[in-house]
């Protein structure tokens, strides 16, 4: 995606630069150049999308290629959500959409018309932490912190999934409710990679929050 948009900018810059060297860079001609670029089909298709992010309604017109992750970070400047692998493998981009956790890097922003999106910024604030954020701090559930927003969004959703009786790969009896064990939390959090290896503290933090709910 970045490669393609850089290409567009480069082409436009080259047109403008070319005109400058010909000593003809008037505003009028610059406008003509931009129209010419667009007529050649270089301007990529855009689409409108309207959704709610952390309780605020947002209307955007985006290049159709924009992922939900890039819309949040680059257009709405909610940089708490992180870009790790950008391929759905690391979980750093995890956000909660319509009550469910997902990889925001593997979804187009325009696919979320009317959606309700919660990012780490919507869970708590520095002065009013979400219980999961407070527990991560208390248990040292991170070192560098890069994966932490994704870990916390995922952890909050994991507890909701347990409450909704969603089973997991390690659930022994499929027709019974899953129990809140370390094995269950490890399995359910396996889509969030922590390069620093804070896993055991992350499990402790989630266990504490879950215990308080019960």
């Amino acid at each position: 995606m970045h490669r393609a948009s850089n290409l567009t900018i480069t082409r436009r810059d080259m047109l403008i630069a070319g005109m400058t060297s010909a000593a003809a860079a008037t505003a009028l001609r610059r406008a003509e150049a931009e129209v010419a670029v667009s007529e050649r089909g270089a301007a990529p298709p855009h689409a409108k999308v309207f959704f709610n992010v952390n309780g605020v309604e947002r209307a955007l017109e985006l290049d159709t290629r924009t992922t939900l992750l890039d819309a949040l970070r680059e257009h709405l400047h909610l940089t708490g959500t992180k870009k790790g692998c950008d391929h759905g493998q690391c979980g750093a981009c995890t956000v909660i959409v319509d009550g469910r956790r997902m990889n925001s890097c593997l979804s187009l922003a325009v696919m979320h018309e009317g959606g309700n999106i919660t990012t780490i910024e919507g869970l708590g604030t520095p002065n009013n932490l979400h219980p999961m954020q407070a527990a991560f701090i208390r248990h040292d559930g991170y070192q560098c912190g890069y994966c932490t927003p994704g870990q916390i969004c995922s952890a909050v959703a994991v507890l909701a999934e347990l409450e909704a009786n969603v089973p997991s790969h390690v659930t022994g009896n499929l027709t019974a409710a899953a129990e809140l064990t370390h094995d269950e939390l490890r399995e359910r959090m396996s889509g969030n990679i922590c390069r620093c290896g804070a896993y055991s503290n992350i499990v402790d933090a989630i266990t504490e929050v879950a215990g308080r709910k019960v």
Binding site: S154, V158, N165, H169, G191
Partner: peptide, 26 residues
């Protein structure tokens, strides 16, 4: 998570849960 699938088609529930991550399955 559908209780009919868990009860009557356990092999399907198990296969689904063995795949990908929670985020992707959602």
């Amino acid at each position: 998570a559908d209780m009919r699938v868990r009860r009557d088609y356990g092999v399907l529930a198990r296969a689904l849960l063995a795949g990908a991550s929670g985020q992707l399955r959602n």
